[in-house]
């Protein structure tokens, strides 16, 4: 008796929540069309997807979830960061590995590259990225990541995605890159080797990507590495702007994203590190050159 009552009230709450979500969804749909234009919906229809019976892909990507995630990022992309995209014509239609510089303390760069590949590239793509495995133990976070196409960062997943002709984004600098202090801005740190072996094994073209603007969104004067270690965080940046009202918001810098020409590498993916390192250096110097050019060409950080 009591049990059925609990279930009934649980159902009632569930029903209410459902109605609420529905209204919210409707509101967001209108806002999206308003802000991003009908074009946004037309683009959604053109994304190449391979969905299963349960209308998700094998990694759990749900186009319905991705739509809302992309819409919120796209609003930032267009209206807050006013992103300019260069070299969109360089993006291949099939499998592709994007190798980008990483910066900005929090990975807004990844989100904006994702938005660019949806808003400014033809055909529009849902870019896939790799997330830390501990994120899988976090409720809601793991769910959200999976539904918007972010997969656990293990080599098997990367390989499988590329074999499915997906677009994969990697930051070979990892957390070293994103935690750079302001005086180190636009100087690339070391690249890992994994992405090159992956590209060679799956015969995937590498598209170098340069992101300009992220370095100025949060000005970090120092990274307290030892404190970060104690707190088990990847970094602990000191960001003076945080003391200002609304200081947690990134500065409204203008992002410029450059897609370079695809680079192809042949050879044995299991070759010695020294051989792989030389190939990685070519990609790294290409990205670094694109970054330098981008910084030189921009006239203002904010406009």
């Amino acid at each position: 008796m009591e049990r059925s009552l609990t279930i009934k009230s649980a159902r009632k709450v569930g029903g209410l929540l459902h109605a609420l979500v529905k209204t919210a969804k409707h509101g967001v749909d209108e806002f999206m069309t308003d802000r991003l234009g009908e074009e946004f919906n037309a683009r959604l229809a053109r994304v190449p997807l391979a969905l299963g019976t349960a209308s998700v892909d094998p990694f759990g990507l749900d186009p319905d979830w991705t739509k809302y995630a992309l819409a919120s990022v796209a609003v930032l992309h267009r209206h807050y960061f006013r992103t300019q995209v260069f070299g969109a014509e360089n993006v291949p239609q099939k499998r592709v590995l994007f190798v980008a510089n990483h910066s900005g303390q929090i990975p807004i760069d990844g989100a904006l590259i994702g938005a660019s590949l949806f808003m400014d590239v033809e055909p529009p793509r849902f870019v896939r990225a790799m997330v830390e495995k501990w994120s899988q133990t976090l409720p809601f976070v793991s769910l959200l990541f999976s539904r918007v196409g972010q997969v656990v960062g293990v080599p098997e997943n990367a390989k499988r995605l590329l074999e499915r002709e997906e677009a994969l984004l990697v930051f070979p600098e990892g957390s070293r890159g994103i935690a750079k202090t302001f005086d180190q801005r636009y100087k690339l740190t070391d690249f890992g080797l994994g992405f090159m072996r992956l590209a060679m094994e799956t015969n995937t073209p590498i598209v170098p990507v340069a992101v300009i603007g992220a370095e100025e969104q949060y000005v970090s004067v120092k990274n307290l590495a030892s404190l970060a270690k104690v707190l088990r965080m990847p970094s602990f940046p000191l960001i003076p702007q945080m003391l200002l009202p609304m200081g947690f918001m990134p500065l409204p810098v203008r992002y410029r994203i450059y897609f370079g020409e695809p680079m192809r590498f042949a050879g044995d993916p299991d070759d010695e590190d020294s051989v792989i390192e030389e190939k990685v250096a070519r990609v790294r110097s290409t990205v670094q050159a694109m970054v330098h050019r981008g910084v030189r060409e921009r006239e203002s950080v904010f406009f």
Partner: peptide, 9 residues
């Protein structure tokens, strides 16, 4: 496991 690849061989 949290770090399982999506498909285990």
């Amino acid at each position: 496991q949290p770090d399982n690849p999506q498909f285990l061989s």
